[in-house]
């Protein structure tokens, strides 16, 4: 199945995330990742949804049936900036400390917490780079890990702002 990245602008109402997720569940679509957050426009939230589907058009049409969904763009084929953040807590013994610090530098990651036997590293990058970082760091002993999921923005002038949509509707 093909993996698609959708940028979805929604009205910032309670329950809107629930509606979107519930639609995916009941139609049997597989969400690989979903991130929501505020945008430049008050009242508008933005989701980046990564979904596996052979019929993404149907997914998009079903999402559009939700009253609070403003705009959906499939940016899978567009030039984009894709970012994800990961926090990794490593079990660290003295002998590996220097090696880990060196790797962190290679990946332009940050060590954000150091304790006697542990270290927390923060790393941001494209999904592939994050995968790669995790693979490299794994042999040292990952105690805990949390990835944020992907956020995506199209490069260049073309974009996805909710401001215009809100203005039009207010007229």
């Amino acid at each position: 199945m093909k993996i698609h990245t959708l940028v979805v602008l929604v009205q910032d109402h309670p329950g809107v995330l629930n509606r979107a997720v519930s639609m995916f569940r009941r139609r049997g679509y597989n969400i690989a990742s979903l991130v929501v957050g505020h945008t430049e426009t008050p009242g508008v939230s933005r989701m980046t949804i990564v979904v596996e589907s052979d019929n993404v058009e149907q997914v998009v049409k079903q999402l559009y049936r939700l009253v609070e969904v403003l705009k959906i763009s499939d940016v899978t084929e567009d030039p984009v900036v894709d970012r994800e953040m990961v926090l990794v807590k490593l079990h660290v013994t003295g002998q590996h400390r220097a090696e880990i610090v060196a790797l962190t530098e290679v990946f332009t990651a940050k060590i954000v917490d150091v304790a006697t036997n542990t270290m927390v590293i923060e790393m941001t990058g494209g999904p592939a780079k994050v995968d790669n970082f995790i693979d490299v760091i794994r042999p040292f002993g990952i105690k805990e890990m949390m990835r944020t999921g992907r956020i995506t923005m199209v490069r260049g002038a073309k974009g996805h702002s909710g401001a215009e949509l809100i203005d039009q509707a207010a007229e």
Binding site: V10, L66, L165, A169, A170
Partner: peptide
């Protein structure tokens, strides 16, 4: 009561 508020549904057209 205020019954005058205009319908605002930017996602429903």
């Amino acid at each position: 009561p205020d019954y005058s508020k205009k319908i605002f549904l930017p996602g429903y057209r």
